[in-house]
Design a protein around this nucleic acid. Structure first.
Lengths: 248, 248
DNA sequence: CGCTAGCTTGATCTCACTCAATAGCAGTGG
DNA sequence: CCACTGCTATTGAGTGAGATCAAGCTAGCG
């Protein structure tokens, strides 16, 4: 059951045997408190972690002490599968909320690689999904203004949470402070606060504490220039994430 | 010989047989003119391209017609190896200069995957290098100001060109317009022009046309807060890219 | 020679940052 | 019960980095 969101999350029609093979590679599960750094930049690791519950960040610490998110993970994401080939990461991985993770020793992943080429390619695919998300983050930072960035970020989270049934498309829980959102969008917490009020005042969405309500999805998507294609979701989820799936 | 830069580029101590296997997977080579779009966003592909000569971009076209780079490739880079697992890309790949590429059919890559787990993991590693670069680009956009961004970009290009012996650490050819640099750094061409003059006036580096001269590497690296670790270069090249390798 | 692409420089404007003050709220302890 | 602390959010005033708009300049090339 631990891997069920891996399936949902990216439309892989995984077979029963593949799933069994994958689950057999789990050594144990662990829980971390908020703020716990699970993987430290530059430190060699020999396991990879699948996020089962909670949110985790990938972030880079700037020399001036600021923190910048380069990725955010929801349940079902392999947070550091790339460590299987890289061994050392170029960033930290930390728990944003209380989290539960499943631990995959790299030795087990090697066995999978030896045994099942298709499943291996699926795992490879997952690491490439991360890269596709990175590219959208680059695009967001380079090309959108503050309110578009925040809107784009909320659209992305809505789409990804939809895929794992953690959003119903109208409201979801996002346990991030405005400072966290700022770190993801390259904005100060003060400006995030202003922008969220704008989005509320223009009846697109309301973010209060960790409660996000999508008021007018189409307006939000269009304001953010959001395109779910890069998430490689199944087409139904993608449609719902832009408000084009009302007919289902 | 086509793959020689793949070796240099990322410190993989690849064996003779691996290399032979890799080269045997090349179906043909092709040349493209500047501006040619080799891979179009969303179009399914069944080959991947290794860049042999010239520069290629990965970019996303914004709805307003602007173009934003999400990656830049030098000889030795697999420009769209990720298409092997993704099949459709979320961005375009285009020639910035006249380029020569080696074509790897995905069918051949599948044979490699079936035959050689270690080489497969090396290829996987290459796609993860791209992701690590993406993360640095995110960091650059989110956290550095205009002159730091440009300096950081030039440091990155210097380091990567050093690795393939296309820079001697003091000067190199970078056939990009100021508009291109702006698209890579999230700046307007006008502001790139101003920033390059600042860098020249403060004796860090000089960019004139496609000729880049590193005048004071240490100052440039320190200004840009550049850290070559994420490039996963061999340690000698990394040291030279920050000016700490003078003793060699 | 004139045309075009790329680069430079100036004037103006605006978005988002910084600094600063205030309020709400949860937890803690007297 | 209230006072105190710390964290988060809100709002205002002032500032500045980089965008935009516009005008020249330079060099390569038919």
């Amino acid at each position: 059951m631990l891997t069920q969101n891996v399936l949902r999350n990216n439309a892989l029609e995984i077979s029963h045997s593949e799933r069994a093979l994958l689950e057999s590679a789990i050594e144990r599960t662990e829980t971390y408190d908020p703020g716990h750094v699970a993987v430290r930049q530059g430190v060699e690791v020999d396991v990879s972690l699948l996020l089962v519950e909670g949110l985790m960040t990938r972030h880079i610490d700037a020399p001036d002490g600021r923190r910048h998110l380069v990725g955010l993970h929801v349940p079902g994401d392999f947070v550091d599968l790339h460590a299987y080939a890289l061994k050392k990461l170029d960033h930290d991985v930390a728990a944003l909320t209380e989290v539960r993770v499943a631990v995959f020793p790299h030795a087990s992943l090697e066995e999978i690689q030896a045994a099942d080429n298709l499943l291996t390619r699926r795992l490879w695919f997952l690491t490439l999904l991360d890269a596709a998300q990175h590219r959208q983050w680059i695009y967001r930072l380079a090309s959108l203004n503050a309110s578009q960035r925040v809107a784009h970020f909320l659209c992305e989270m809505n789409a990804r949470l939809l895929a794992i049934a953690a959003s119903d498309g109208e409201a979801f829980t996002l346990p991030m402070t405005q400072t966290d959102i700022g770190e993801a969008c390259g904005l100060t917490n003060v400006h995030v606060s202003r922008v969220l009020r704008q989005l509320r005042d223009s009846n697109m969405c309301s973010v209060r504490g960790s409660k996000v309500e999508i008021i007018d999805l189409k307006a939000l998507v269009s304001h953010a220039l959001f395109d779910p294609d890069f998430l490689f979701l199944n087409s139904q989820t993608a449609a719902r994430s832009t408000g084009k799936g009302g007919f289902i």
